[in-house]
Amino acid sequence: MKKRSAHKEHSQMDEKLSKWNLFWHFPIIWMIAGTIGIILVDALIRPLVEQAPGLVSLLLTLTLGFLAIMVYMLIMKYLARRSIPELSRKGAGVEAVMGALTGLIFIALSTIIIVLLGGYTFQWANDADTVTVLIVSIEAALGAAIVEELIFRGLVFQAINKLLGTWTGLAVTSLFFGIAHLGNTGSTLWSAFALSLEAGLLLGAAYLWRRNLWFVMGLHFSWNALEGLLGIPVSGHSSAGLFIVKVHGPSLLTGGDFGLEGSVVPVIISLLISIPMLYGAIRNRNLPPNFT
């Protein structure tokens, strides 16, 4: 009787552990757990970054990025129980540089077109501290690129893709990326929609094309960094740049207080970049295994 009772208790314990494991392995659960973990890391270190001087703030940002990546990898390894090829160290530097060059071309071309259409004029900021502006722009862009890409193209996309397929994952992350910026200065329904296309779709397409987060982080980083250096508001966040930007004409052209992302120009250019990326991903069969 004692043996039967012990065996029954052991079976019940195994069943409870099995249910508990299934709970943590469910995509929405590890997505939420990972997102909370990364946000907590950001919330703890970001205030220190903002208070620290010069290069110290940049070092703290690198620490923030490292810890956020560690949280992501631990969640994927122990909760999602999957490999992490999207953060493979092989070719990481090359992918990051390629992504950065893509972002530079995208923002530079968008800005030049708006200037030619009479939307922007630039004047060198004589009182700008070049070193300080560089550090602040790099630090802000780097932190945002790592944290946001780990959450959106990493956790959220992987979870939605696992449950509902690639196209649904791409659509959900794109829309949510725009919605997440609705509270920013100068934000409107149009700017949220525009950001969903030019950022959500472009970054999602870039991930599907290259199948790694380094490329996407590089693209996101150079995008924000160049805007900051030019003195253009980054999704409503203004900071001192190397230039003083004077805005002329309708907000549909200039983006208004929201900045470049609220303009129709980068929306069109991003689509011209995103569509070939998606085509390349499909043609090369470079889509996630559970593509539907």
Rank of each mutant, 00 (worst) to 15 (best):
L116E: 10
F176D: 00
L202M: 13
G204Y: 06
L219F: 13
T185R: 11
H25G: 05
S11F: 02
I146L: 08
A100Y: 00
G65H: 01
L74R: 13
L74Q: 09
L203V: 02
M217C: 13
L22C: 10
F152M: 09
G200Q: 01
P47G: 10
Y72M: 09
R4V: 09
L164W: 09
L208D: 02
W209M: 14
L182E: 00
S5F: 12
L272C: 14
R285N: 15
L229A: 07
M73A: 13
G280F: 10
Q158T: 14
T130E: 07
L170E: 02
P289C: 03
L287G: 01
N161K: 10
G236Y: 05
L175R: 00
T61P: 07
T121A: 14
L17W: 02
K16I: 04
W167T: 05
I275G: 02
R81M: 14
F291C: 08
R153M: 08
L104F: 15
V131M: 15
L64R: 02
G200R: 00
G200N: 03
I135E: 02
W124D: 01
T63I: 12
L55N: 12
V216M: 08
L260I: 06
N212E: 08
V156S: 02
L213R: 06
F66K: 10
F177G: 00
T292W: 06
I135M: 05
L203F: 11
G34E: 07
V216R: 03
I135A: 05
Q158V: 09
G37F: 10
T168Q: 05
I38A: 03
V245H: 04
